[in-house]
Nucleic acid binder design. Structure first.
Lengths: 185, 185
DNA sequence: TTCGTCATGTAATGGGTTACATGATTAC
DNA sequence: GTAATCATGTAACCCATTACATGACGAA
């Protein structure tokens, strides 16, 4: 997840880690913050994989002079990284349908092909519908016996997923009418 | 979290692990499942701490006969466990206000003093309001520049937290009028 | 007797967080 | 020159998951 988010943001513009973290927070919505303890190791990993470059690079030979030059380090998506990101965004696996994975995909929908967007939206909707139906039947089965608080919790949860289904349906309709502007009067 | 949930469920009735897991899933709402890989070690830990008892107990001396008697093992809340649970449910720390922690508390509100319930509900509301305000200002600040999908994601998120605030307000009002039925005509 | 599901458990791993340590830059 | 904040990084830990292994028991 962090991987997609980092690559996606760096595809918009090069940045250093600190700024990346701030953008990450606002992109993913104030919740879901990511600490430096996971961000920096991830950046190192992505750099090792060749998907991003660091400027200035880590000094391989530690000359006793200028040692531990610790300053801003700007990360930039490489050509391979761009390719890799495209693959990640186009891969419609089960992880694209859970909360985190879907959120990350949606955040970079502008960089995703319309056909893939539709698959992701529909997959997500199916997932949320399953959840909704599960909750609905649990509520129907145990609703009477549940104490007031638990019931209210479940009812609120049910309404939330219900709203999400409707929201997704709207997005899907938009997507479809964008994709085929055939029936345009 | 698992700790509260397990103790809370066992307070309602003794159970074995497998059943506990099912109840856990439906209690916490189909999402949030907990695998055996975390459940059984937790049960072991709680038993070691003396908060729950196992029946039949793990055989201390492994007689070569009847070894590895692997069958149902019923867990039951002990007196110390009951006390510990009461403490956990009454402790209104910051972790009681995040998604998980709040959900776990609410699920056992029936076992919680009204005064504590109110504190938890109000703390949660404050937390969600902060989130909402953060999202609101982010949206106001960056809304125009955001691409359509990201904006829709943020708008949907904002509506969701907004709904949660209203829901919590309702619960708080209920709680208050239950607590002080003074103004009853 | 074999299949499904109930039931318990462990080892390896994962993906993050917290707390800490350090250094660079800017504003006062 | 000093406080705040920008900025990078590591180590220890936590809490869970996945994948696996095992076994009991009832129904066909």
């Amino acid at each position: 997840m962090l991987e997609i988010a980092v690559l996606g943001l760096l595809n918009e513009s090069p940045m250093h880690g600190y700024e990346l973290r701030k953008r990450l927070s606002s992109l993913l919505g104030a919740f879901r913050a990511f600490s430096y303890g996971s961000l920096y190791p991830t950046l190192r990993r992505l750099a090792d994989a060749g998907w991003i470059s660091e400027e200035p690079p880590i000094e391989a030979a530690p000359g006793t002079a200028t040692r531990s030059r610790r300053g801003k380090r700007v990360y930039r998506l490489t050509a391979e990284g761009k390719e890799h990101l495209a693959v990640l965004l186009a891969r419609v696996g089960p992880d694209a349908f859970d909360d985190e994975g879907f959120g990350a995909r949606l955040a970079f929908f502008a960089q995703t092909r319309s056909e893939i967007r539709l698959q992701i939206l529909e997959g997500r909707r199916r997932r949320v519908e399953e959840q909704r139906d599960g909750m609905k039947s649990t509520l129907a089965r145990t609703g009477e016996r549940l104490d007031r608080y638990t019931r209210q919790l479940h009812e609120h949860g049910l309404e939330s997923v219900d709203r999400e289904v409707r929201w997704l349906t709207e997005l899907i309709e938009n997507e479809r009418s964008d994709a085929s502007p055939a029936a345009e009067k």
